[in-house]
């Protein structure tokens, strides 16, 4: 191959890729990781479905970094895995919390996270937020997207005191961890 032909050869490779991009997406393509996720049991939608999963008695590795009633920014609490006094939610505020957690047994990100309110209401929360600090701390790149955040409007709570448990579904979706008595809130 002479130097003059090299760009022509590269252009042929590039054009083959562009044609390939159309040809290859015409058929079923499911990456292995996605196929593995899709073969997992469905996530629980209710407490009854949650009860059908195995319970893991240990606490998962986790931290609740911020609990606050927003808007207003009052009652901001920062702590790591220790109970706090009740957060007061007033008027049209929401209970906001964020932190991180993962499946300690497999050392992989959890399948999902939920909140259980007073043991009668189950709410799915956002899980998978980027937390590069967690991955760096545990020296595991797979634990980069293990952040969670939730914002629960006041109307999900009746007046009075409420207990909120964190539910962490294991990576394989077959069992769950429960973080109890960490979050209490009081709605005026």
């Amino acid at each position: 191959m002479t130097s003059r032909n090299v760009p022509i050869a590269i252009c042929i490779v590039a054009l083959a890729m562009m044609v390939g991009s159309v040809a290859l997406t015409g058929r079923e393509t499911v990456p292995r990781r996605l196929a593995a996720l899709m073969s997992l049991p469905p996530l629980p939608n209710s407490l009854a479905e949650l009860a059908s999963l195995r319970t893991i008695s240990d606490a998962p590795p986790y931290s609740i970094d911020v609990i606050s009633a927003s808007p207003g920014g009052a009652n901001v609490v920062r702590f790591h895995a220790r109970p706090v006094d009740a957060i007061t939610i007033r008027g049209n505020q929401s209970l906001t919390l964020n932190g991180w957690a993962y499946d300690g047994r497999s050392s992989e990100p959890a399948r999902a996270m939920m909140l259980e309110i007073d043991r009668h209401d189950l709410i799915a929360i956002t899980y998978g937020d980027a937390r590069p600090d967690v991955g760096t701390f545990f020296r595991a790149a797979t634990l980069t997207n293990v952040g969670f955040d939730a914002s629960i409007p006041a109307d999900r709570f009746g007046r009075g005191r409420h207990r909120i448990d964190l539910i962490v579904i294991s990576a394989d979706g077959s069992s769950y961890y429960r973080v109890v008595d960490r979050i209490m809130c009081y709605r005026t």
Partner: peptide
Amino acid sequence: LRETLFGVGLVTLNLAVLWR
């Protein structure tokens, strides 16, 4: 997926320019 694969093709075309 089509967009990402096409992107690799674009970058490869760019390589021909860099060769020149």
